[in-house]
């Protein structure tokens, strides 16, 4: 790690371990819990969660970055788990919908989604909620228009969109004490 990349000295293969293609040991921290897994490097974070950690709250809608159902946070930022390889998350904090609740207590955004009926079939819902909480932290929820734009990466085929906006609005306003 000493080499900062400025010079073009000879590479140090010792720091460049080649892992895989067979299953490799990796340690992932998901919802604050460290888990050791043996996965091929090609396994996506999404499949690692769903097929290997029994964390099925993160949904697979398209597996190609076009629906947002697999939205999780990596190091606090909302990203798509389907386009993230699990192995790249070593040493990062992964948060899924299962990590949003504290004990039996729903997160305010989850409660607001329930109350505003911001869901129907529920399949896109975890992704919507992970996106919505991140959206408030990002500070892009001042107007309905802004909420709509910044939530457009999460497709809801049941089209609960107006209710999703009102749920987000309510949590925003409660946060800011309005």
């Amino acid at each position: 790690m000493a080499d900062k990349g400025a010079s073009l000295s000879v590479a140090k293969p010792s720091t460049m371990e080649i892992r895989g293609p067979d299953g490799v040991r990796m340690e992932l921290v998901v919802n604050g819990v460290s888990r050791v897994l043996h996965l091929e490097p090609r396994v996506s974070l999404l499949d690692a969660l769903r097929e290997h950690m029994a964390l099925t709250g993160t949904k697979k809608g398209c597996d190609q970055g076009t629906c947002g159902a697999c939205t999780v946070w990596v190091d606090g930022r909302r990203v798509l788990a389907c386009l993230t390889l699990a192995i790249t998350c070593e040493g990062r904090d992964v948060t899924t919908i299962e990590g949003l609740t504290e004990g039996d207590e729903l997160h305010p955004m989850q409660r607001a989604f329930l109350e505003h009926d911001a869901l129907q079939c529920g399949y896109c819902t975890p992704g919507q909620i992970m996106s919505a909480v991140a959206l408030l932290n990002e500070g892009h929820a001042e107007t309905d228009r802004e909420i709509a734009e910044w939530m457009s990466g999460n497709i809801c085929r049941c089209a609960a969109y107006p209710h999703i906006r009102s749920a987000i609005r309510e949590v925003r306003d409660r946060k800011t004490g309005q």
């Binding site: 029994a54 099925t56 993160t58 299962e98 729903l106 989604f113 329930l114 009926d117 975890p126």
Partner: peptide
């Protein structure tokens, strides 16, 4: 009334067809 299956959906605990392993 709020959905009776709503809590399972907002927490992601509801299991859909491909989520049984």
């Amino acid at each position: 009334l709020d959905r009776v299956d709503g809590a399972a959906k907002v927490t992601g605990s509801g299991r859909y067809a491909a989520e049984f392993t």
